[in-house]
Simulated scan of single mutants.
Amino acid sequence: MINMKMAIFTDTFYPDINGVARTLKRLTDYLHKQNISFKVFAPRSTGNEYVSENIHRFEGLSFFLYPECRLALPKPKQIKNELQAFSPDLIHVATPFNMGLCGVYYAKKLNIPLVGSFHTDFEQYLSYYELPFLSKFIWKYMNWFHQPFEKLFVPSQDTYEKLSRQQFRNLEIWPRGVDCQHFHPNYSQRTVREKYQISKRYILTYVGRLAPEKDLMTLMSIAKGIPEDLHQHIQWIVAGDGPLRKELESEAPENVIFTGYLSGVQLAEIYSVSDIFVFPSPTETFGNVVLEALASGTPVIGSNSGGVKNIIVEGVNGILCQPGSVEQFIHAIVHLLSHDRERWQMAMEGRKYALSQRWDNIFEHLILQYAAIINKNKKYA
């Protein structure tokens, strides 16, 4: 066991439904298991409040590009008192908004080593919200915000390279893992088919937030564009919720089921019984759902963009398509559904890859990185 105390500043935390909140909950669960003391400073959740003595909550407002991420209204004196009483060895900032700014400020003011993690590429979201003119401002702000960090942990090689081109420093890859005991290929086909009254031969699935940056209009065009002789044998399942849900339901062809947000066994079952996972989003810094699909023995057809292209090995565990190319996605779907042996081989390779991505190994490496930074600061104190 490594002896340290951690303070985490974030503008979203469990039970919020997004990749940042889920990753940080995984991290704090690991810290707890390793008997490493931690405090989380976060806004109040939009869901049922998760209460713990380790978490300090503040009122907040929704952020327009990502409503699940809250702009907190922190109480500086309370934060300072909590930090001084806790006396952390390290501050980890996970988001670049109000709570993150507090973390940066108090790290400097109280002389506490500072690291951060980069989870969401907001600059890529801008074109989907008709705000591309803000791009230069976003990069300027993000560069300024991350300047003091001794390490900035990024989720994929693609993000590492992108931030390097934008002159970010002290980058380190912190990938994501997957629970292969929960996500596996052996759930009951019959259970899911009876639950959703599915009689068609093939099940194609999308899992994720129903929002503009996921390029779901491309998904709808793909579903509509499948050749009729194959279309009649396909059942689509869209698992997730978000601001586009009503619009997507009105646009979708008759063979699409919208389940709403799923978690736990209900979600794992959907992945497991699917023949192909189709994921057109070009804006992922990692792509947690892609790794969950692979763990479930489901090959992925995804966009050749962002962190997804670092998970999918072309022709081995999935197929990569040009972002937004309805034609390429349809061609890939038709090909895999017409070649059972190739699809099953991809399923096995996907599971094999997912088994190598263990959370404990990933967190163990992260903790060693934390310890090295703490020790370096103690040496020069």
Rank of each mutant, 00 (worst) to 15 (best):
N111R: 15
W359R: 12
T28L: 06
P88G: 05
R22T: 15
V326P: 03
I222Q: 03
L216C: 04
F168I: 09
Y187I: 08
Q357V: 03
G324V: 11
E49R: 04
Q369T: 04
L27I: 12
E213K: 03
G318C: 07
F9N: 03
P88T: 10
M348G: 08
C321L: 09
N186L: 13
R22M: 13
E82M: 13
I270Q: 04
D215L: 12
Q322P: 00
N361E: 11
R193M: 09
S263M: 00
S62T: 14
D158L: 00
I36K: 06
K80S: 11
I367P: 06
Q124F: 11
Y105T: 11
Y125E: 13
A354K: 07
P148H: 11
H56W: 03
S135L: 01
S274F: 08
Q235T: 12
I91E: 03
Y196L: 14
D241F: 04
Y141I: 01
V334I: 13
I222V: 15
G297F: 07
Y106I: 13
L291G: 01
F153S: 05
F97H: 06
P96I: 02
K151Y: 07
F13C: 07
G350M: 05
E327K: 15
P155Y: 07
H146N: 11
V115R: 03
V207D: 03
L210I: 06
